[in-house]
Amino acid sequence: MTSRTERLSELVRTVAFAGRAAAEVWVRDSGLTRQQAFTLGYLEQNRDRDVIARELAEMSGTTPASVTSLLQGLEERGYVTRTSSPGDARVKLVRVTAEGARVVAGFDESMNAEQRKLFATLDTAEQDQLIALLERVVAAGPAAEIRPSGLGGRPRR
């Protein structure tokens, strides 16, 4: 017999997996690799500060050489720029371009459309009730410190 907690966990995971599946379809259809999409989202989330290639390698668990290759592909498509740091010409500052930001916005729009379809089975009052219940759950536990991240894939704290 499945406990109530197990059933709740299963349902929450199912909703999360539906979102992940929609994200995978978007990434595939965008012509980006998963790593390129992740990097582009991360840069968009951090657009108000300088991001260096080494940081991208560390947060994604890849090598600096892999990040360099990945950034070249994004730069060729006009999604990012790389400029030398004023303090050290060997350090490259990476920024998302307006075109790259539009790609990320397209991802967000696509995910919102998928979520609207998913929750369309609930009327407005039921959606409000679900929001209130989930907000209570999130506020009461360690998840309260983590915010979802979008295309960047990593939770923001």
Results as ranks from 00 to 15, higher is better:
Val27Arg: 09
Glu114Asn: 10
Leu40Gln: 09
Leu70Gly: 04
Arg13Tyr: 04
Arg54Met: 12
Val138Asn: 05
Arg28Tyr: 06
Leu122Thr: 05
Leu71Asp: 05
Thr39Ser: 13
Arg82Trp: 01
Arg47Pro: 02
Asp29Met: 06
Thr83Ser: 15
Arg4Leu: 13
Glu99Val: 00
Ile52Leu: 02
Val15Asp: 04
Leu93Lys: 13
Glu135Asp: 15
Gly150Trp: 12
Ala105Cys: 00
Leu134Tyr: 01
Ser110Phe: 14
Gly106Trp: 04
Asp50Ser: 13
Thr14Trp: 04
Arg82Thr: 09
Ala57Ser: 15
Glu99Asp: 14
Gly78Thr: 08
Thr5Val: 10
Pro64Met: 04
Val96Pro: 03
Asp123Thr: 10
Glu99Met: 02
Gly152Val: 05
Leu56Ser: 07
Arg90Leu: 08
Val96Phe: 04
Thr5Trp: 05
Met1Phe: 07
Leu134Val: 12
Thr83Arg: 15
Gly106Arg: 01
Glu44Tyr: 08
Arg156Glu: 09
Ala18Phe: 11
Thr121Arg: 15
Glu76Leu: 12
Leu93Tyr: 03
Arg4Asn: 01
Leu134Arg: 05
Ala113Glu: 13
Leu130Asn: 04
Leu130Gly: 03
Ala37Lys: 09
Pro64Phe: 00
Arg28Trp: 03
Thr33Cys: 05
Leu71Tyr: 11
Glu6Met: 06
Val51Ile: 14
Ser30Val: 05
Val94Pro: 07
Ala139Pro: 01
Val103Ile: 10
Leu118Thr: 15
Gly41Trp: 09
Arg28Glu: 12
Gln45Thr: 06
Ala18Glu: 14
Glu114Thr: 10
Val103Pro: 03
Glu55Leu: 11
Asp88Met: 04
Pro155Ser: 12
Ser84Phe: 00
Asp123Ser: 06
Ala21Met: 08
Ala16Pro: 00
Ala125Tyr: 00
Leu43Val: 10
Val15Gln: 11
Gly141Ser: 15
Thr68Leu: 11
Arg157Trp: 07
Ala139Asn: 14
Asp123Glu: 04
Ala22Ile: 01
Leu43Asp: 01
Val25Arg: 15
Arg157Thr: 12
Leu151Thr: 06
Phe17Asn: 13
Thr62Ser: 11
Ser69Asp: 09
Glu109Ser: 14
Val27Pro: 08
Leu118Asp: 02
Ser66Arg: 10
